[in-house]
C-alpha cells in the first residue's frame, strides 16, 4: 500500500515536470487566454445588467444561444463556397453588427415590456421572470430549428463551415504556435473588453451608468432618467450576449445548438459570482482566473496526470464553491451590491 502510494507520488512529478516545458506552458497559456476571453465575453453582459439594475438575467444563456443561431444564419446566407477567407472574416463583422443590433432591440423590448413592472417586487421575481423567458426562447428556437430540418442538440455544422480556413489551423508566430480560433477569440475578447471599458470610463453615458450602479436614487435625484439608462444597459448586455454567441458559433468546442443556452449560462454565472456580482473589473479578472484553471485542468487530464474526465468542468464549479466559502461577495464585490 505504502509502496504503491510512493510510486504514484513518485510518478506524478515526472508527468508534472512536462508542464514546465516551453511548449506545454505556451499551449496552456494560449488555451487559458482564449478561454478567458470567451468567459469574459459571456459574462460581461450579465455583470453590466446586474451591476446597474440588480437583475440577475437568467435568460442570458438563451440569448447567447439566440445570438449563435442568428449569427450562423447571417453567415450561412452571406457566405458561399467561393467566398474568400478574408471576405468571410469581413462578413463575420457585418454579422456581429446585425446580431448586436437585433439582440439589443430584443433586450430593450424585454426590459420595457416584462422586467420593468417587476422592479418593485422582491429580486427573486426577476430571476423567475427571466427563467421563464429562457423556457420560451429555448423552445421557440427548438421549433424553428427543427422546422428547418436542423438537429437542435448537435452543433450547426453548416455555420461552422463558414469559418475561414486559417482560423481552423495552427498559426506559427515565431517560436510559438497558436490555434487560429484561439487567437481570434483572444483578439475579439480583448477588443470587446476594451470597448466596454472605454464606454464605461471614457464616455458621459458610461459615467451615468456607473453612477446608477453606485446609487440609482441619487442619480435620479440629479435629474437623470435612470429608467432609460436601465433600458439601454439591458439592451447593451443582451447585445453582448449575442456577440459572444456569434463568436461561439465558430468554435468547435461550442457551436450553435440549443443546449448552448445552459452550457454558457452556468460558466457565465460562475465568472460573475467569482468576480463579485456587478463589478466589471472583477468579472474580467475572474474570467482570466477561471480560464487559467480550466486550461490547466484540461491539460492535466489530457496528459493523463489525473484520470478523472469531469475534472475541467468540475474545476470551474469548485473554484466557485471555494470562493463562496472564503469570500462570498466575490473578488471585487461589495456585500450590499444590487440591493435595490
Amino acid at each position: 500500500m505504502s509502496a504503491l502510494f510512493a510510486a504514484s507520488v513518485g510518478a506524478l512529478p515526472l508527468q508534472l515536470a512536462e508542464l514546465f516545458t516551453f511548449d506545454a506552458l505556451s499551449s496552456v497559456l494560449f488555451d487559458a487566454l482564449s478561454k478567458a476571453a470567451v468567459y469574459a465575453m459571456l459574462a460581461m453582459g450579465l455583470t453590466l445588467i446586474f451591476g446597474l439594475m440588480g437583475v440577475l438575467n437568467f435568460a442570458h444563456g438563451s440569448l447567447t444561444m439566440l445570438g449563435a443561431y442568428l449569427g450562423g444564419l447571417v453567415m450561412v446566407v452571406l457566405v458561399t463556397g467561393a467566398t474568400g477567407p478574408w471576405t468571410r472574416l469581413a462578413f463575420f463583422f457585418v454579422g456581429l453588427v446585425v446580431v448586436f443590433g437585433l439582440l439589443s432591440a430584443l433586450g430593450a423590448t424585454l426590459e420595457v415590456g416584462l422586467i420593468r413592472p417587476l422592479y418593485d417586487r422582491p429580486p427573486i421575481y426577476q430571476i423567475l421572470l427571466t427563467f421563464g423567458i429562457t423556457l420560451v426562447i429555448d423552445e421557440l428556437v427548438r421549433i424553428v430549428v427543427l422546422f428547418y430540418g436542423l438537429q437542435p442538440i448537435t452543433e450547426w455544422q453548416e455555420a461552422l463551415g463558414t469559418k475561414p480556413y486559417f482560423l481552423g489551423q495552427q498559426l506559427v508566430l515565431g517560436p510559438v504556435s497558436v490555434g487560429g480560433m484561439d487567437l481570434f477569440e483572444m483578439l475579439l475578447g480583448a477588443a470587446t473588453v476594451a470597448a466596454v471599458w472605454a464606454f464605461l470610463t471614457r464616455t458621459r453615458y458610461g459615467l451615468v451608468v456607473r453612477a446608477g450602479s453606485e446609487d440609482a436614487e441619487m442619480t435620479e435625484a440629479l435629474g437623470i432618467d435612470v429608467r432609460r439608462v436601465f433600458t439601454t444597459v439591458f439592451a447593451l448586455g443582451v447585445g453582448l450576449a449575442g456577440v459572444a454567441g456569434m463568436l461561439l458559433m465558430w468554435d468547435n468546442n461550442w457551436g450553435a445548438s440549443v443546449p448552448l443556452a445552459t452550457e454558457t449560462l452556468l460558466p457565465a454565472f460562475v465568472v460573475v459570482i467569482i468576480g463579485g456580482l456587478g463589478t466589471f473589473r472583477g468579472t474580467v479578472v475572474a474570467a482570466v482566473i477561471v480560464g487559467f484553471a480550466d486550461a490547466l485542468a484540461q491539460w492535466l487530464f489530457v496528459n493523463s496526470v489525473v484520470d478523472f474526465p469531469p475534472l475541467p468542468q468540475l474545476t470551474v464549479f469548485l473554484i466557485l464553491v471555494v470562493m463562496l466559502v472564503i469570500r462570498p461577495q466575490g473578488l471585487f464585490g461589495r456585500a450590499e451590491v444590487g440591493g435595490h
Binding site: 446586474f50 440588480g54 440577475l56 422582491p122 429580486p123 427573486i124 430571476i127 452556468l266 454565472f269 460562475v270 459570482i273 456580482l277 464549479f317 466557485l320 464553491v321 463562496l324 462570498p328 461577495q329 444590487g338 440591493g339
Partner: peptide, 10 residues
C-alpha cells in the same frame, strides 16, 4: 437573495 440562489445552484 440572489447570492443564495446562486450558491445552491453552484
Amino acid at each position: 437573495g440572489v447570492y443564495f440562489a446562486m450558491i445552491t445552484l453552484g
